[in-house]
Design a protein around this nucleic acid. Structure first.
Lengths: 190, 190
DNA sequence: ATGTTTATTGTCCGAAATGACAAGATATTA
DNA sequence: TAATATCTTGTCATTTCGGACAATAAACAT
């Protein structure tokens, strides 16, 4: 009785194009025309299938956060804490263009409390999962520090600040997760 | 023979207003009208004293980076590495509104190679100064990790991800700087 | 006082982006 | 094939921002 709905696919195409534009020129400078050209569609179609600009941004956020969570679900169960933080270092913070879009989201969260909360929830979940894998005092704080180190290193890498030897970052994060570091400190100070 | 030049003071007022606007609503959404209102001056005066928008942004960047460097110069000479990283944690990443503007700069650096280089130079200098204070293998990489941890913790704090006990972050960064961690690791693994 | 440099005001223009919508085309089902 | 929901196109209005400039006021030196 009616033409078949292809809205879902169109939406997908548009969001892919939107993401490419955001990675290339930033969220603030990406216009509907940019997205339309990237998607090979006239601009009004973007409005028709997605809605206004806010709706498009919201859809992008949902898409990215969902993808981030899916990535964490790929973490093999039964991993050690060190394998988990290696996973975070090598997989989560690896893709450079994804990192750029994530940084765009981060920036957006500066003035968007709900987005900030969503980002916080994702990272907190990673921290909690790693914390559950380690022993010793303050597991949450130590996992926090390890993930913070991974985040900071990723941000620094984006700046062009290279670590001569990436293995040392892994070693440092492992060191933060080591269960009986206070024992080691006692040994060292003795 | 002429009216006295008050350009320097006006420039300062305008840049203070600009910074306040950027902290409040972000660089991209700060218009010349916003700055003019915040400064209590008509809009054309902003253009008269500063120039166009690019010039204003450039002036803000110079101002912030200069301030950042001045902050590092306040680090007492003869400090230990642990005092230095404490200084970074407690002083450099302390002021919340300054952090927001720094994050704006960081975001801007995503598409501005020269700004990216300037930011990198500042952080690299901090890393090098701390690296010079520690012994053992890979001093640069260990200093890199300690500063990355501080940066990541600051970014997480902005998200609202609180560390139950901030002292643990200090402890973790000290641990990364400890000179003979490989000896400790050997002891622990023995 | 007068001229000269600097500061201040008011106002306009053009570019660019978003939002809105009418009108036409297309595919499916009845 | 005809009705209808869906998709597509073309076009326009509004808003907002940045840039420019002429005209006026103020302060100081001579």
């Amino acid at each position: 009785m009616a033409r078949p709905r292809i809205g879902a696919e169109r939406r997908e195409e548009i969001l892919v194009a939107f993401e490419a534009c955001v990675a290339r020129k930033g969220l603030a400078k990406t216009t509907l025309v940019d997205v339309a050209e990237q998607a090979g569609q006239p601009r009004p179609l973007v409005r028709y299938f997605i809605g206004n600009r806010d709706a498009m941004v919201t859809a992008l956020i949902d898409r990215l956060l969902e993808r981030g969570e899916a990535q964490f679900r790929r973490l093999p169960i039964g991993s050690t804490a060190e394998q988990a933080i290696d996973f975070v270092l090598d997989q989560v913070f690896a893709d450079e263009t994804a990192n750029i879009v994530i940084m765009e989201l981060w920036h957006l969260s500066l003035r968007d409390a709900s987005l900030r909360a969503r980002l916080a929830a994702i990272y907190e979940r990673v921290i909690l999962e790693i914390a559950a894998l380690i022993d010793g005092p303050h597991p949450h704080d130590r996992a926090f520090c390890a993930v913070a180190l991974a985040l900071g290193a990723a941000f620094f890498r984006h700046l062009g600040l290279a670590v001569p030897n990436p293995a040392n970052v892994h070693g440092a994060s492992h060191r933060l997760l080591r269960s009986d570091f206070s024992a080691a400190d006692r040994i060292l100070s003795a």
